[in-house]
């Protein structure tokens, strides 16, 4: 699914990276815990999180996430947006709660990252 479809599904505001809305997204991961995103993240995922500090953007860059969706109406601070622009990571903000945002994406064919047990 293209990122622009995710914007529509989540009724999201584009905070940065409007030029990258044709990015193809297949995979999502959701967590407020960056430790776990680093441990379980897979390249190319879209990261759903409620953590708005610059570390959320830094973590997304390190794991090679394709975009970040901030849930619960949260928005990153200026440092976070500046870093996202520099690293060319699109940022969306949705009013939906984490569970609802994940449910909508899952129902529309976005899959989750592997469960820890699946990993060799």
């Amino acid at each position: 699914m293209k990122l622009r479809e995710i914007v529509n599904l989540l009724d999201a505001e584009i905070m940065s990276g409007a030029e990258n809305m044709d990015e193809e997204i297949k995979l999502a991961g959701a967590s407020d815990l960056m430790s776990d995103v680093l441990a379980f993240g897979q390249p190319g995922l879209i990261l759903l999180t409620g953590l708005t500090n610059p570390q959320s953007v830094r973590t997304a860059d390190i794991i090679e996430a394709k975009a970040i969706v901030y849930v619960r109406g949260k928005k990153p601070d200026a440092d976070g947006i500046a870093l996202a622009q520099k690293k060319k990571i699109p940022i969306l903000s949705t009013q939906f709660m984490m569970f609802k945002a994940c449910g909508i994406l899952y129902r529309n064919g976005i899959t989750g990252v592997s469960d820890p047990k699946d990993k060799s």
Partner: peptide, 14 residues
Amino acid sequence: MGFGAGMGLPNIKK
């Protein structure tokens, strides 16, 4: 900050 879950050192090793 989103850290301190006790995953760091094991994750570095992994």
